[in-house]
Amino acid sequence: MSQVGKKVAVELFYDVLSPYTYICFEILTHYNTKWDNMDLKLKPVSLRGIMGLTGNRPPGLVEAKSKYMTKDLIHVAKYYGIPFRFPMDVPNVMFTKGSLEAQRLLTVVQNKHPGHLESLSRALFHRIWVRDEDITTDDSLTAACQAVGLQDLETKEMLKLIKTNEVKDELKAHTQAACNAGAFGAPTYVVHLKDGPITLFGVDRFFLLCHYLNQEWPGNETVTNNSKM
């Protein structure tokens, strides 16, 4: 039973700090252009905020789990043909530097330049999870904005905005909304079906999304989004 012309909204709550979310982002944005019944809505949130609100702890804190994840991420990325490389100093990138500035910037872009949200998110994901580049300083964020075609003036204005309480509060509100939808980590995606929303956690529940959207699971078909970079 296909629902021609009827799109299903899928909200992806994401933070560029999470490597599994990077893989999920690439998969969902890729199939959003291929499937005619999916309407992907990108929702930047703060992963650190979600962990704080729910009392969840990052999986990497258990040593054996962290060792496994360093291999698992490489295997999963390779399976989908997604470029992936660990930064040299993962604890520094993930736990010390974090992604608050980047997520605030994405929050502003979502409002002011929604057409650039996907490309800027990808640029920031790639800075961490492919090229081991910083995403915390104004210079780094400016470079990412430039790379996706945002004007210097627009970028300067946005960098001012991310220091305001309005934007900080907005990111907090979006993070709280993700938790209200049942999020306890990232990636979390909510499929808005006719008979109610379904919250899915983890890149590895993609096959269920396919099922709910009446799409065939594409297996290890290569995921490519480079054209939009």
């Binding site: 729910t54 009392g55 969840n56 938790c179 049942g182 306890f184 919250t199 956690f201």
Partner: peptide, 11 residues
């Protein structure tokens, strides 16, 4: 983790 247990109840 309670919120995770809630998710598992559906998953």
């Amino acid at each position: 983790l309670p919120i995770r247990a809630q998710y598992m109840n559906k998953d």
